[in-house]
């Protein structure tokens, strides 16, 4: 082995985007680019599975723990401050803590698990299992319509909605539309980060637009 590989890591943590060696733009904004991709390096992610009909106390417990009411309308999300909760299915949600602290996910998991004591539910920290990519810019919809078969038009996809679909040919993603800029967060399985990122770059090329890599926040 070459010696260089034996040296200790510069940091204890590596985001899913580290291996992509992205040239993140330092100045603010799109600067004329049609689409901006934002590597959201670290996030706290926690899944919750519970049947609200079977466990009537769960909803209040979640509100107590997070301040958020679980969205029950399919394909919707609720957000407050730096916490969002995404509807994934009739008995499944994903909490997103917009906080890069290493324990952001684990802390929320502990809190939820504690408040759901005695309730048939599953709370799992999946912070490491998924990657989040912010997508923004005037051509964001045009670019995404090359990667996912969803209708991205504002008439059928409104801020506050979250949709789950096939990306490219190989993997599933969740898309959370946050505002009508539009700004979206795309969630994919961690191991597919490179595929998804390169695919989006190629989609931007196909859409004949320019892409910028923007810093998170």
């Amino acid at each position: 082995m070459p010696d260089s590989m034996m040296t200790t890591a510069a940091s204890l943590r590596h985001s899913p985007f580290d291996p992509l060696h992205l040239a993140v733009r330092t100045q603010d904004g799109l600067q004329g680019a049609g689409i901006g991709l934002i590597p959201r390096d670290f996030r706290g992610l926690v899944t919750l599975r519970v049947d609200l009909d079977r466990e009537p106390t769960a909803r209040q417990a979640v509100t107590d723990a997070t301040g958020l009411d679980l969205p029950t309308a399919p394909n919707t999300a609720a957000s407050q401050d730096r916490l969002s909760v995404l509807w994934l299915g009739p008995d499944e949600w994903l909490f997103v803590v917009d906080d890069p602290a290493p324990d952001a996910g684990a802390d929320l998991q502990t809190k939820l698990t504690g408040l759901l004591e005695g309730v048939f539910a599953q709370v799992v920290d999946v912070s490491g299992a998924q990657a989040a990519i912010g997508v923004t810019g005037p051509d964001a919809r045009e670019v995404l319509e090359r990667a996912v078969p969803l209708d991205m038009h504002p008439r059928s996809f409104q801020p506050g909605q979250v949709k789950h679909t096939l990306f490219g040919r190989h993997t599933g993603v969740s898309l959370h539309l946050k505002d009508d800029q539009p700004t979206l967060d795309l969630y994919c399985r961690r191991s597919f980060t490179g595929y998804v990122w390169r695919y989006l770059e190629d989609c931007a090329k196909g859409a004949e637009t320019t892409l910028a890599v923007l810093a998170d926040r």
Binding site: M1, P2, M5, H14, P16, D18, P19, R146, G168, R169, H170, T171, R189, R190, S191, F192, T193, G194, Y195, R198, Y199, D202, C203, G206
Partner: peptide, 24 residues
């Protein structure tokens, strides 16, 4: 074929240690 050719024909899943393996 569209863009599903070349490197994007098949998705590659990588472990967090993949870059190390490549360098090795």
């Amino acid at each position: 074929g569209g863009r599903d050719v070349g490197d994007l024909f098949d998705a590659e899943r990588h472990s967090p240690m993949h870059a190390w393996h490549v360098r090795a």
